[in-house]
Amino acid sequence: MSEHTISTKSYYLVFLALMAGTALTTWVAFLDLGWFNTPVALSIAWTKAMLVVLYFMHVRQSTKLTKLVAAAGVFWLLLLLGLTMGDIATRGWLGSPGK
């Protein structure tokens, strides 16, 4: 694990990108993009999160195992959200009083 390869300059660049992302997501929220607003907001948040994880948390230089652990966390979160929504989103389909 060679953490010394990231220069301070890249930290400042990432910082500027994060600040820009914050401004962007706030600005976009006030535009009417229809149903597209939420995906855009989440994409910006995801990009910012990846910047933090890869650069500030040094995942870019870390072992495959660390990457795997981080990815597993996201994957299991998606399992929880996905299978739960599989119920919530389809409850009305049958038109029965099951909702």
Binding site: T26, A29, A41, L42, I44, K48, A49, V52, F56
Partner: peptide, 26 residues
């Protein structure tokens, strides 16, 4: 501690748009 602090920051990066920025244009 750095990892922990960044993680807390990360949670907020998602909380901000999810809580504050819903349909602001409306």
């Amino acid at each position: 501690c750095g990892l922990y602090w960044h993680f807390v920051d990360l949670i907020w990066i998602f909380l901000f748009p999810l809580l504050y920025l819903i349909d602001r244009h409306a």
